[in-house]
Simulated scan of single mutants.
Amino acid sequence: MPRSQVLKPTDVPRSPVVLLLVDVINPLQFPNAGGLVREAVRAAAKISKLKAKLKSRNIPAIYANDNYGTWQSEFSDILVECMGLSGPRGEIARTLAPSETRSRDIETPAFGISFHSASASPRSHGSGEIDHRGFCH
């Protein structure tokens, strides 16, 4: 079967500027995560305000997320799981969950975003300026 009948390209919004959100949908369940969780709650509120401001200017958000070693995971599954967490971990996911149709997600193997393929990078989709925010440990 010809490739064009099997795989159809995703309609990716073109924008000279994007907001790249790195690992913000994250269970933050690792040793000594308490300090990061407290700071991440505050950061999530600020990122949410920035995202809303950029959305009003028609600037899309791209979520680049690890799959935490579970290769069969989909971003939507990780999102639902994180949003269902109690306390501040769930609050972070609920605050930063994608809500608009112009949001896109890029899922990478565990700890792989820094090595992610250029073919899926925001620059390869017409973005000249990238504003990135995220959490790391």
Rank of each mutant, 00 (worst) to 15 (best):
E129F: 02
I62L: 12
A61R: 00
R104H: 01
G69H: 05
S99I: 01
A110F: 14
A64N: 10
A93I: 03
A44C: 13
A45Y: 04
P98M: 04
P60K: 15
L28I: 06
H132R: 02
N32T: 01
Y63H: 13
K46L: 07
V80W: 02
A64Y: 07
I59E: 10
S4R: 09
S48A: 15
G34L: 00
G35A: 08
I130N: 11
R38H: 06
Y63M: 12
F111R: 14
R89G: 05
N67C: 14
F75I: 10
P98H: 02
G128Y: 12
V18D: 08
V24C: 13
D11P: 00
S114P: 05
L19P: 01
V80P: 00
L85K: 15
N26T: 02
G134P: 01
N32E: 14
C136M: 03
G126N: 08
N67E: 15
F75P: 03
R123L: 09
N67K: 13
S119M: 12
V37A: 09
G34W: 00
G128W: 05
P122Y: 06
G126I: 09
S73E: 15
V12P: 08
T70E: 13
Q29C: 02
F115G: 11
A118W: 01
P9S: 04
G128C: 14
Q29P: 01
L50A: 07
L96S: 05
A93C: 05
E74V: 08
S86P: 06
G87S: 15
I106T: 02
V24W: 09
V22K: 05
L36G: 02
V12R: 08
L85G: 11
G69Y: 03
G112P: 09
V41E: 15
H132W: 12
D11L: 09
S48I: 06
L36W: 01
S103R: 03
L19A: 02
R89W: 02
D66N: 15
A45C: 10
N26I: 07
S114W: 04
C136F: 03
I113A: 09
S76G: 12
V17Y: 05
I47Y: 02
F135D: 07
P60G: 13
L50H: 06
S127F: 03
G69P: 06
Y63V: 03
S86E: 12
V41W: 11
K55H: 03
F115C: 10
L19S: 04
L21A: 09
M1Q: 12
P13T: 12
K46M: 05
P109L: 10
V18F: 03
D11G: 05
E91S: 15
R14H: 10
A43S: 08
V41D: 12
R102K: 12
P109Y: 10
S73Q: 15
M1P: 09
M83L: 04
I106R: 06
S48L: 06
S117P: 06
A43I: 00
L21I: 08
P9N: 10
T10K: 06
R42A: 13
E107Y: 00
M1H: 09
S121Y: 09
P31L: 01
E100L: 03
L19H: 09
G35L: 03
G84E: 11
G34Y: 01
S103A: 11
E39L: 06
G35C: 03
E107T: 07
I130Y: 01
P98S: 06
R38M: 09
P122N: 07
Q29S: 13
C82F: 00
I130Q: 06
V6F: 04
F135R: 04
S119R: 12
S119E: 14
R89P: 04
F135T: 08
S121E: 11
